[in-house]
Design a protein around this nucleic acid. Structure first.
Length: 669
DNA sequence: TGGGTGAAC
């Protein structure tokens, strides 16, 4: 998550054990706050149950205090047997901020008894017993230690979000618990914490584990449905906003949920237009867009309180559903739609589609109006439409390419992936497809069982898509790891190009100096080099329409990948100016993502699926028509688009994977 | 000539 959105007013500085506010020691004050949380009255009962049970499901609404308090109760009662209590979170920022808060409550320094561990930031020590971490981090650790021997408790928090990592962890911790019991090791206690969703489902999966309910502290939200179905949700959202604006007090802010960047920018513009033309006594409006691709300084605008007598309107994607909390929202306008990525295992294709919400998601959105006071939610769909929404969002694990997950499971020693104990099993087709892809990359061999090769083991060490980790290993052989590390890092963060619609021409012109006729990969390499040359200067980023946040993330990723190379003693060498060797690597790693220009001129055909594909308009090669390309990913919107491409020689593809292309019969020149 | 919801190792 890009920004720290806590309001400065609540960001009191606490010093461990000391410090005073209004004459009351801070530590005492915090203990008082702890005792006032809804969970406190259930403390005795919870401890008793957790002492007795191996696995428990804890259900608590927002504000119950379960995330901060439950681990402390376990610690205070010494249930953890002086081992570590892990608490996983789907998001980095949550893991970091909650850990800091709990450290304050315990009057200890962050990183001592209470610590956090997220990618790029390990704030733990040998003293740490309460460890907040991302779910992906615990999964990484499970590769090195599938029995999770350092932990006596694993608490999977926000389980209802069903991130791909949490879903894999369900099976991993269940297996670890069972195997520890069989080997007479110290028991592993498992706690699943969730909002009120999927309760029975969780319980069933964990051998009918008991469910403990906690009271929450959420303000009531009045929900209104549209009387008629709306054909144009964008228009309806604007109408609803101005209805609120005319009738409600100015200090009550509005949050509108829409689907994407372009839609949001255009709605922000039309709200401005309409507000300008308004006569009468409606208060002034400030309107801010909010989506992940927005540079940080623009995102931060949404958090500033509006001037007195002014209404603030935030027009956001689902980033405001869970990831970012905006304070002071009284009204939510929910359009009932979201843009979602859907993976089709057969063609290996990501579809980006506007789809209906689930009931759970709609509830989450309306809840955003009741964080600090009673609020109102306008749903721009009828109650009957709502009844037809699916109950829950399809878990991520059923919507994603699983090659990375399959590699991780294999690295943990789990060979029978198709029969792995998933809470909601992905389709067999997509599991087999994932293993097949690993096989094609040389990461596994199929004998009686599926086994990781030496290459596969090396690949699993990298937090990357297997295609990209393979590309790194090829770069090692071809002595251009220096460059390919950079390219792979740039590919594994969100786009570093920021192209505002109104300054499109300017952005493209000023970035032209980075563009390489070899394609996007070399262009990304040029951008990274230039960025390093100016030492990550913010103004430079701004002038060149480069997203500084994502650039600095790419740099962090590169540093991490570099460390993994060093720890595996892989020599990081440079190829100097010879970009053809880099493209040779890319061809050898991405051969499954290759396409050829058809003789008739415009259209490319994917060598894997034989489907027509197109060069994405954001590509450096958009106006060029090279005969043969490899690409990083395929996205279907209005057409099938290849993103992040490089020009390659068809011979390189054949040389890299002769068996693969023998079957596919490429049209050799 | 057309578009990139959101997280994470």
């Amino acid at each position: 998550m890009p920004v720290d959105n806590r309001p400065p007013a609540k960001k009191m500085k606490f010093s461990p054990g000391g410090g005073f506010t209004n004459g009351v020691p801070v530590f005492q004050k915090l203990q008082q706050i702890r005792r006032n949380l809804p969970i406190f009255s259930a403390k005795r009962k919870l401890i008793e149950e957790l002492r007795r049970l191996d696995t428990a499901i804890v259900i608590g609404e927002t504000g119950s205090g379960k995330t901060t308090q439950l681990p402390q109760y376990i610690f205070e009662e010494r249930l953890h047997k002086n081992m570590i209590i892990a608490i996983t979170q789907p998001r980095r920022v949550a893991a970091i901020t909650v850990a800091q808060r709990v450290a304050q409550e315990r009057g200890s320094e962050p990183g001592h008894v209470v610590g956090h561990c997220v990618r790029f930031e390990d704030m733990t020590s040998e003293k740490t017993r309460i460890k907040y971490m991302t779910d992906g981090m615990l999964l990484r650790e499970a590769i090195l230690d599938p029995l999770l021997k350092r932990y006596s408790f694993v608490i999977l928090d926000e389980a209802h979000e069903r991130t791909i990592h949490t879903d894999v962890l369900f099976g991993v911790v269940k297996q670890a618990q069972k195997r520890r019991k069989l080997r007479n090791l110290l028991p592993l206690k498992i706690i699943i914490m969730s909002a009120t969703m999927d309760v029975d489902h969780f319980s069933q999966f964990f051998n009918k584990a008991p469910v403990l309910y906690l009271e929450g502290r959420q303000f009531p939200v009045q929900v209104y449905y549209s009387r008629e179905p709306q054909s144009d949700y964008v228009f309806a959202a604007v109408v609803a906003l101005f209805q609120i604006h005319r009738e409600e007090p100015a200090d009550q802010d509005v949050l509108i949920f829409l689907t994407g960047q372009e839609e949001i920018d255009s709605v922000v513009r039309s709200i401005h237009e309409i507000a300008k033309g308004m006569v009468g006594d409606a208060p002034p409006l400030v309107v801010w867009p909010l989506y992940a691709a927005l540079p940080s300084h623009l995102q931060l605008k949404a958090f500033n309180p509006a001037p007195k007598g002014t209404r603030k309107v935030i027009v956001a994607t689902n980033i405001a559903e869970t990831s970012i909390t905006i304070h002071g929202i009284s009204f939510v306008i929910d359009t009932g739609v979201v843009k979602a990525k859907i993976f089709t295992p057969r063609s290996g294709l990501d579809l980006l589609k506007v789809v209906k919400l689930s009931k759970a998601q709609a509830l989450q959105r309306s809840g955003r109006a009741g964080r600090e006071a009673a609020g109102t939610c306008y749903r721009l769909y009828t109650e009957e439409e709502f009844q037809h929404f699916p109950d829950n969002t399809i878990p991520e694990i059923q919507r994603c390419n699983l090659s990375s997950v399959a590699l991780q499971l294999l690295a943990m020693g789990i060979t029978d992936i198709v029969n792995f104990d998933f809470m909601d099993k992905p389709s067999t087709e997509s599991l087999i497809g994932a293993v097949h892809q690993l096989h094609t990359l040389g990461a596994v061999i199929k004998e009686n069982t599926i086994k990781l090769t030496a290459t596969g083991k090396r690949m699993a060490a990298f937090p990357l898509d297997p295609k990209l980790s393979k590309t790194l290993l090829i770069a090692l052989e071809l002595h251009c790891l220096e460059e390919v590390l950079t390219i792979v890092s740039m590919l594994s963060v969100d786009s570093v190009l920021f192209t505002p619609q109104r300054k499109r021409e300017e952005a493209l012109a000023v970035r032209q100096k980075f563009v390489s006729s070899d394609g996007d990969h070399i262009t990304l390499l040029n951008i990274y080099k230039a960025y390093k040359g100016v030492k990550g200067n913010k103004e430079w980023c701004h002038e060149n329409f480069i997203n500084g946040r994502n650039m600095s993330k790419a740099m962090d990723v590169r540093k991490q990948l570099r460390q993994i190379c060093d720890s595996q003693t892989l020599a990081v060498k440079s190829c100097g100016q010879d970009t053809s060797i880099i493209r040779r690597c890319l061809a050898a790693g991405l051969f499954m993502n290759a396409a050829e220009l058809q003789r008739e001129g415009d259209v490319y055909i994917s060598l894997t699926t034989r489907e027509p594909v197109h060069i994405h308009p954001s590509s450096a090669l958009f106006r060029c028509k090279p005969a043969c390309v490899v690409y990083n990913e395929l996205v279907k919107t209005s057409k099938c688009y290849m993103r992040d491409l490089s020009v390659v020689d068809p011979d390189w593809l054949y040389e890299a994977a002769p068996a693969y292309f023998k079957r596919k019969k490429p049209s050799k020149k």
